[in-house]
Protein backbone atom coordinates (compact mmCIF):
# COMPACT_ATOMS: atom_id res chain seq x y z
CA UNK A 1 0.00 0.00 0.00
CA UNK A 2 2.88 2.30 0.77
CA UNK A 3 4.04 2.01 -2.78
CA UNK A 4 0.77 3.26 -4.12
CA UNK A 5 0.52 6.00 -1.51
CA UNK A 6 4.04 7.24 -2.21
CA UNK A 7 3.30 7.11 -5.90
CA UNK A 8 0.23 9.26 -5.54
CA UNK A 9 2.10 11.78 -3.35
CA UNK A 10 4.91 12.03 -5.85
CA UNK A 11 2.41 12.36 -8.69
CA UNK A 12 0.69 15.26 -6.99
CA UNK A 13 4.05 16.89 -6.26
CA UNK A 14 5.21 16.57 -9.88
CA UNK A 15 1.97 18.00 -11.18
CA UNK A 16 1.65 20.79 -8.65
CA UNK A 17 5.26 21.96 -8.87
CA UNK A 18 5.03 21.87 -12.65
CA UNK A 19 8.12 19.71 -13.16
CA UNK A 20 9.79 20.91 -16.32
CA UNK A 21 10.43 17.48 -17.83
CA UNK A 22 6.93 16.22 -17.04
CA UNK A 23 5.44 19.30 -18.66
CA UNK A 24 7.62 18.85 -21.73
CA UNK A 25 6.64 15.19 -22.09
CA UNK A 26 2.96 15.99 -21.65
CA UNK A 27 2.99 18.72 -24.28
CA UNK A 28 4.92 16.48 -26.67
CA UNK A 29 2.32 13.72 -26.21
CA UNK A 30 -0.46 16.18 -26.92
CA UNK A 31 1.26 17.57 -30.00
CA UNK A 32 2.15 14.19 -31.55
CA UNK A 33 -1.28 12.70 -30.94
CA UNK A 34 -3.14 15.82 -32.11
CA UNK A 35 -1.14 15.70 -35.33
CA UNK A 36 -1.88 11.98 -35.66
CA UNK A 37 -5.60 12.61 -35.10
CA UNK A 38 -5.67 15.37 -37.71
CA UNK A 39 -3.87 13.12 -40.21
CA UNK A 40 -6.17 10.16 -39.52
CA UNK A 41 -9.22 12.42 -40.07
CA UNK A 42 -7.76 13.77 -43.31
CA UNK A 43 -7.45 10.22 -44.61
CA UNK A 44 -10.38 8.55 -42.84
CA UNK A 45 -13.28 10.97 -43.38
CA UNK A 46 -13.05 11.23 -47.19
CA UNK A 47 -12.32 7.51 -47.48
CA UNK A 48 -15.27 6.64 -45.23
CA UNK A 49 -17.60 8.88 -47.24
CA UNK A 50 -16.40 7.31 -50.45
CA UNK A 51 -16.95 3.78 -49.10
CA UNK A 52 -20.41 4.74 -47.87
CA UNK A 53 -21.63 6.32 -51.08
CA UNK A 54 -19.94 4.79 -54.09
CA UNK A 55 -21.22 1.55 -55.48
CA UNK A 56 -18.31 -0.48 -56.79
CA UNK A 57 -17.19 -4.07 -56.96
CA UNK A 58 -15.48 -5.20 -53.81
CA UNK A 59 -16.99 -2.49 -51.64
CA UNK A 60 -17.91 -4.97 -48.94
CA UNK A 61 -14.41 -6.43 -49.05
CA UNK A 62 -12.97 -2.92 -48.70
CA UNK A 63 -15.22 -2.28 -45.71
CA UNK A 64 -14.13 -5.60 -44.18
CA UNK A 65 -10.49 -4.51 -44.60
CA UNK A 66 -11.27 -1.25 -42.82
CA UNK A 67 -13.01 -3.07 -39.99
CA UNK A 68 -10.06 -5.44 -39.66
CA UNK A 69 -7.80 -2.39 -39.54
CA UNK A 70 -9.64 -1.24 -36.43
CA UNK A 71 -8.16 -4.19 -34.60
CA UNK A 72 -4.65 -3.96 -36.08
CA UNK A 73 -1.95 -4.89 -33.53
CA UNK A 74 0.10 -1.70 -32.89
CA UNK A 75 3.39 -3.61 -32.83
CA UNK A 76 2.78 -4.86 -36.35
CA UNK A 77 2.03 -1.33 -37.55
CA UNK A 78 5.12 -0.07 -35.72
CA UNK A 79 7.23 -2.75 -37.32
CA UNK A 80 5.93 -1.97 -40.82
CA UNK A 81 6.39 1.78 -40.42
CA UNK A 82 9.89 1.23 -39.03
CA UNK A 83 10.75 -0.99 -42.01
CA UNK A 84 9.44 1.63 -44.44
CA UNK A 85 11.39 4.44 -42.76
CA UNK A 86 14.59 2.47 -42.20
CA UNK A 87 17.60 4.12 -43.81
CA UNK A 88 17.70 1.50 -46.58
CA UNK A 89 13.88 1.18 -46.70
CA UNK A 90 11.57 2.56 -49.44
CA UNK A 91 11.03 5.84 -47.56
CA UNK A 92 14.48 5.93 -45.93
CA UNK A 93 15.36 9.11 -47.82
CA UNK A 94 12.86 11.04 -45.73
CA UNK A 95 15.16 10.45 -42.75
CA UNK A 96 12.34 10.69 -40.21
CA UNK A 97 12.78 7.44 -38.26
CA UNK A 98 13.06 8.15 -34.50
CA UNK A 99 11.34 11.53 -34.82
CA UNK A 100 7.99 12.88 -33.63
CA UNK A 101 6.86 12.86 -37.29
CA UNK A 102 7.35 9.11 -37.51
CA UNK A 103 5.40 8.63 -34.27
CA UNK A 104 2.51 10.77 -35.51
CA UNK A 105 2.52 8.79 -38.75
CA UNK A 106 2.35 5.43 -36.98
CA UNK A 107 -0.42 6.62 -34.64
CA UNK A 108 -2.36 8.05 -37.58
CA UNK A 109 -2.17 4.73 -39.41
CA UNK A 110 -3.55 3.01 -36.33
CA UNK A 111 -6.40 5.50 -35.90
CA UNK A 112 -7.35 5.92 -39.58
CA UNK A 113 -9.34 2.66 -39.93
CA UNK A 114 -11.48 3.59 -36.92
CA UNK A 115 -12.21 7.02 -38.41
CA UNK A 116 -12.92 5.49 -41.83
CA UNK A 117 -15.23 2.83 -40.42
CA UNK A 118 -17.15 5.23 -38.17
CA UNK A 119 -17.51 7.76 -41.00
CA UNK A 120 -18.84 5.09 -43.36
CA UNK A 121 -21.30 3.92 -40.71
CA UNK A 122 -22.39 7.49 -39.97
CA UNK A 123 -23.02 8.33 -43.63
CA UNK A 124 -24.79 5.03 -44.29
CA UNK A 125 -27.09 5.85 -41.39
CA UNK A 126 -28.43 8.92 -43.19
CA UNK A 127 -31.48 8.73 -45.46
CA UNK A 128 -30.27 7.23 -48.75
CA UNK A 129 -31.94 9.99 -50.76
CA UNK A 130 -30.56 12.86 -48.68
CA UNK A 131 -27.51 13.18 -50.92
CA UNK A 132 -29.77 13.44 -53.96
CA UNK A 133 -31.83 16.18 -52.27
CA UNK A 134 -28.70 18.14 -51.34
CA UNK A 135 -27.42 17.90 -54.91
CA UNK A 136 -30.85 18.97 -56.19
CA UNK A 137 -30.73 22.04 -53.95
CA UNK A 138 -27.71 23.10 -55.97
CA UNK A 139 -24.74 21.92 -53.92
CA UNK A 140 -21.42 21.35 -55.67
CA UNK A 141 -19.52 18.13 -55.00
CA UNK A 142 -17.54 19.65 -52.14
CA UNK A 143 -20.60 21.37 -50.66
CA UNK A 144 -22.47 18.04 -50.79
CA UNK A 145 -19.74 16.27 -48.82
CA UNK A 146 -19.60 19.10 -46.27
CA UNK A 147 -23.38 19.09 -45.78
CA UNK A 148 -23.50 15.30 -45.43
CA UNK A 149 -20.66 15.45 -42.89
CA UNK A 150 -22.61 18.08 -40.97
CA UNK A 151 -25.67 15.81 -40.91
CA UNK A 152 -23.51 13.02 -39.47
CA UNK A 153 -21.65 15.38 -37.12
CA UNK A 154 -22.49 13.59 -33.86
CA UNK A 155 -20.86 10.35 -34.98
CA UNK A 156 -17.99 12.20 -36.64
CA UNK A 157 -17.15 13.97 -33.39
CA UNK A 158 -17.29 10.57 -31.70
CA UNK A 159 -14.79 9.40 -34.32
CA UNK A 160 -12.46 12.25 -33.37
CA UNK A 161 -12.63 11.19 -29.71
CA UNK A 162 -11.89 7.57 -30.52
CA UNK A 163 -9.04 8.52 -32.85
CA UNK A 164 -7.41 10.82 -30.29
CA UNK A 165 -7.86 8.26 -27.52
CA UNK A 166 -6.28 5.54 -29.66
CA UNK A 167 -3.36 7.78 -30.67
CA UNK A 168 -2.40 9.11 -27.26
CA UNK A 169 -2.76 5.71 -25.53
CA UNK A 170 -0.60 3.94 -28.07
CA UNK A 171 2.79 2.74 -26.86
CA UNK A 172 4.22 -0.15 -28.91
CA UNK A 173 4.49 1.56 -32.27
CA UNK A 174 5.60 4.82 -30.64
CA UNK A 175 8.54 3.03 -29.05
CA UNK A 176 9.43 1.25 -32.31
CA UNK A 177 9.44 4.31 -34.57
CA UNK A 178 10.18 7.00 -31.94
CA UNK A 179 12.84 5.24 -29.92
CA UNK A 180 11.92 6.95 -26.62
CA UNK A 181 14.79 9.42 -26.98
CA UNK A 182 15.00 11.78 -24.02
CA UNK A 183 14.07 15.33 -24.95
CA UNK A 184 13.15 14.22 -28.47
CA UNK A 185 10.57 11.47 -28.74
CA UNK A 186 9.78 10.63 -25.16
CA UNK A 187 6.00 10.81 -24.63
CA UNK A 188 3.72 9.93 -21.71
CA UNK A 189 3.12 6.29 -22.62
CA UNK A 190 6.72 5.46 -23.48
CA UNK A 191 7.96 7.14 -20.29
CA UNK A 192 5.50 5.17 -18.18
CA UNK A 193 6.88 1.95 -19.67
CA UNK A 194 10.45 3.09 -19.06
CA UNK A 195 9.92 4.21 -15.48
CA UNK A 196 7.92 1.10 -14.61
CA UNK A 197 10.81 -1.01 -15.87
CA UNK A 198 13.21 0.94 -13.73
CA UNK A 199 11.04 0.46 -10.67
CA UNK A 200 10.25 4.18 -10.42
CA UNK A 201 6.60 3.53 -9.74
CA UNK A 202 5.95 6.99 -8.32
CA UNK A 203 6.98 8.74 -11.54
CA UNK A 204 5.20 6.13 -13.66
CA UNK A 205 2.04 6.59 -11.66
CA UNK A 206 2.25 10.37 -11.86
CA UNK A 207 2.58 10.22 -15.65
CA UNK A 208 -0.27 7.68 -15.81
CA UNK A 209 -2.56 10.04 -13.91
CA UNK A 210 -1.61 12.92 -16.21
CA UNK A 211 -2.33 10.74 -19.25
CA UNK A 212 -5.77 9.84 -17.92
CA UNK A 213 -6.55 13.45 -17.08
CA UNK A 214 -5.44 14.57 -20.52
CA UNK A 215 -7.63 12.02 -22.31
CA UNK A 216 -10.55 12.99 -20.09
CA UNK A 217 -10.05 16.71 -20.69
CA UNK A 218 -9.94 16.36 -24.47
CA UNK A 219 -12.90 13.99 -24.49
CA UNK A 220 -14.86 16.35 -22.27
CA UNK A 221 -14.16 19.20 -24.64
CA UNK A 222 -15.29 17.16 -27.65
CA UNK A 223 -18.36 15.88 -25.81
CA UNK A 224 -19.42 19.43 -24.97
CA UNK A 225 -18.93 20.35 -28.62
CA UNK A 226 -20.96 17.32 -29.67
CA UNK A 227 -23.86 18.11 -27.37
CA UNK A 228 -23.89 21.70 -28.57
CA UNK A 229 -23.91 20.44 -32.17
CA UNK A 230 -26.94 18.35 -31.32
CA UNK A 231 -28.91 21.45 -30.46
CA UNK A 232 -27.40 23.67 -33.14
Amino acid sequence: MDLLWDGLREAVRLIVTGDREVLEITLRSLLVSAAATALSLTIGVPLGMLLAQRQFRGRSVALAFVNTGMGMPPVVVGLLVALMLWRSGPLGELDILYTKTAMALAQAILAAPVVTGLTATAIQGLHPKLRLQIVALGASRLQTLALLAREARLLLIAAVMVAFGAAISEVGASLQVGGNIKGETRVLTTTVVLETGRGNFDVALALGIILLALVFAVTLLLTLLQQRARRA
Binding site: H127, K129, L130, L132, Q133, I134, A136, L137, L147, R150, E151
Partner: peptide, 10 residues
Amino acid sequence: ATVFQEPLLL
Protein backbone atom coordinates in the same frame (compact mmCIF):
# COMPACT_ATOMS: atom_id res chain seq x y z
CA ALA B 1 -35.74 22.44 -57.93
CA THR B 2 -36.82 18.93 -56.96
CA VAL B 3 -39.15 17.76 -54.20
CA PHE B 4 -39.22 14.06 -53.37
CA GLN B 5 -41.76 11.78 -51.73
CA GLU B 6 -39.95 12.18 -48.39
CA PRO B 7 -39.41 15.73 -47.09
CA LEU B 8 -35.63 15.12 -46.73
CA LEU B 9 -35.10 18.09 -44.46
CA LEU B 10 -31.66 18.64 -43.00
